[in-house]
Design a protein around this nucleic acid. Structure first.
Length: 244
DNA sequence: AACGTACCCTGCCGGC
DNA sequence: TGCCGGCAGGGTACGT
């Protein structure tokens, strides 16, 4: 599930339960997970995210980097099944991940920064979404928004959502967007991401998408049926009337 | 550079 | 009720 908003919500949840905790043990239940044991004994100093990556800063200059991919999540209470657990003085976090695509790694600071440097800008930075890399490609704007090197944190859901808010057609070539459209897109990205984050943990109990997974249903602005197309082998949803 | 395909896995859903 | 194909919000590797 997790794109930028879901990862941010998870960061907020984990921060309240884990900040300052000392890691006392590591349990790996899935051999696909390779987790260095030398994180044991270290303290969790900060939890944050970059794009869709979740980062635990540990004492002594190590970082636990996790990418949840399709189905990964961290739970504070023990789920039926989990791939790994990190135990602390007053509890544990469990890495749950049905499809087992998620990855975790322990990195030194220099390695972490090298990895993160390859990602595009943060859409929710103070300056707002920087589309300077996005507009250099001839690919359709929807496809460009999914490229984490061009802008970080937007996935298949929020790419469609952002374009709907911006009233931009997902098939438009990224490098052909006009200044007004880019301005609308920057606002649309912020709108869709912030709106999602504002739900907090309730996000999983509400259907809050404007277009995603609403093929055939009426557009919330003009009642025109939402259209589903496939771009780069993935579903795109948009309103053919609002998004010319 | 862009596009298509295959792959990594499992769970769920609709159709029969 | 049970089976089965198709599909899924992520990303990488490869060939054209």
């Amino acid at each position: 599930m997790p794109e930028l908003p879901e990862v941010q919500i998870l960061v907020d949840q984990l921060t309240s339960g884990l900040m300052g905790a000392r890691i006392t043990a590591v349990e790996v239940r899935d051999a696909k997970i390779k987790l260095r044991r030398d994180i044991v004994g270290r303290r969790v100093e900060q939890i944050w995210r970059r794009g869709k990556n979740l980062i635990f800063d540990l004492s002594g200059g190590l970082h636990l980097l996790a990418h949840l991919r399709m189905t990964g999540w961290f739970e504070l209470k023990e789920p039926k099944r989990y791939r790994a657990a990190i135990r602390t003085g007053n509890g544990a976090i469990y890495f749950e991940d049905a499809r087992r695509f998620g990855v975790m790694d322990v990195l030194a600071s220099s390695q972490l920064h090298a990895f993160l440097a390859a990602l595009g800008p943060e859409p929710l930075s103070k300056e707002g979404p920087n589309l300077s890399r996005v507009v250099k490609t001839t690919r359709p704007i929807k496809v460009a928004l999914l490229d984490q090197r061009l802008i970080a944190g937007i996935g298949n859901i929020y790419a469609s959502e952002s374009l709907w808010w911006a009233r931009v057609n997902p098939r438009r070539r990224a490098n052909r967007l006009r200044v007004v459209e880019l301005k609308a897109l920057r606002a649309g990205i912020v709108k869709s991401l912030r709106k999602a984050i504002d739900y907090g943990p309730r996000i999983f109990n509400v259907q809050h998408f404007a277009v995603y997974d609403r093929g055939g249903k009426p557009c919330l602005r003009c009642r025109t049926p939402i259209r589903r197309i496939v771009q780069a082998q993935r579903s795109t949803f948009y309103c053919p009337r609002c998004q010319r």
